[in-house]
C-alpha cells in the first residue's frame, strides 16, 4: 500500500511522565489486581465471621499495640512518600536520593514491628478458621510490604549509579511511590478488620 505522510513525530519527547507513560498504567493495573485480591481476602474474613456464632472463634481479640504501631508508621511514611514523588517529578536527583533512603528505612520499620504483630494475633493459623484468615490477611499484606521494599532498595541503589539522571528512572520512582501509597491504603481496611471488627 502506498503511504502518505500526515504527521510528524520528531518533536515528541523520548519518555512521557505520569499518565503518559505505559509503566504508570501497568502499575495501576497491577494495583487493581492486588486490590481485588485484598478485597476478596477481606470478603473471606467477613464471610467466615458471618457464619461463626462467636467471633473471634475461641480466641481473645488481637493485641492492639503492634498493629496500631504499624499503622502509624505507615501513615507517617506517606509524608516522605508524597514528597519523593514530587521531587521525582521535578527530577531533583539529590532530594530523590535522600527520599529513597528514608523510604527504605520506613519500609523496614513496619516489617520489624510486624514480627511482633503475628504473635499479637494471639492465635495460630492452624487453630481454627479465624486464625487462618487473620494470618492470611496479615501475610498477604506483609508480602506486599516486602516486595515494595525490595523495589525501593533496588531503585535506591540504581539512583546512586550513572543510570540515575534519566526521566525514565524518575518515572520509576514516581510509580514506586504510587505503589507504596496503595500498600498503605490497603492496610487500613485490613487493620480495621483484624483489630476492630474482632472487638465488636
Amino acid at each position: 500500500m502506498r503511504e502518505r505522510i500526515v504527521l510528524d513525530l520528531r518533536k515528541l519527547p523520548l519518555h512521557g511522565m505520569g499518565t503518559q507513560s505505559a509503566t504508570w498504567w501497568g502499575t495501576l493495573a497491577f494495583m487493581l489486581i492486588e486490590g481485588t485480591g485484598f478485597a476478596l481476602a477481606i470478603a473471606v474474613y467477613l464471610y467466615l465471621m458471618s457464619l461463626a456464632t462467636t467471633w473471634p472463634i475461641d480466641a481473645p481479640p488481637p493485641d492492639l499495640l503492634p498493629g496500631t504501631l504499624v499503622t502509624l508508621i505507615l501513615l507517617v511514611s506517606l509524608v516522605p512518600n508524597i514528597l519523593i514523588s514530587r521531587w521525582a517529578e521535578q527530577q531533583d536527583l539529590r532530594k530523590v536520593r535522600i527520599g529513597l533512603v528514608v523510604m527504605s528505612i520506613l519500609g523496614i520499620a513496619p516489617l520489624i514491628v510486624r514480627v511482633f504483630e503475628f504473635p499479637a494475633l494471639r492465635i495460630s493459623w492452624d487453630t481454627n478458621a479465624y486464625g487462618s484468615v487473620v494470618w492470611l490477611l496479615l501475610g498477604l499484606h506483609t508480602t506486599h510490604i516486602i516486595t515494595d521494599l525490595a523495589d525501593t532498595l533496588v531503585l535506591a541503589a540504581l539512583m546512586f549509579t550513572r543510570h540515575a539522571q534519566n526521566a525514565r528512572r524518575f518515572g520509576d520512582v514516581q510509580d514506586n511511590a504510587m505503589y507504596w501509597n496503595f500498600v498503605v491504603a490497603a492496610w487500613l481496611p485490613i487493620y480495621g478488620c483484624i483489630y476492630w471488627l474482632a472487638r465488636l
Binding site: L48, L51, I57, W125, D126, N128, S132
Partner: peptide, 21 residues
C-alpha cells in the same frame, strides 16, 4: 492458595469442624 494452605500447613478455611466453610 487457601486450598494449598489447608493441605500443606493445616489452616482451616474449608473445614467446617473448625469454623471454616
Amino acid at each position: 492458595t487457601s486450598l494449598i494452605l489447608d493441605r500443606l500447613v493445616g489452616t482451616h478455611f474449608f473445614n467446617p469442624a473448625e469454623g471454616g466453610d
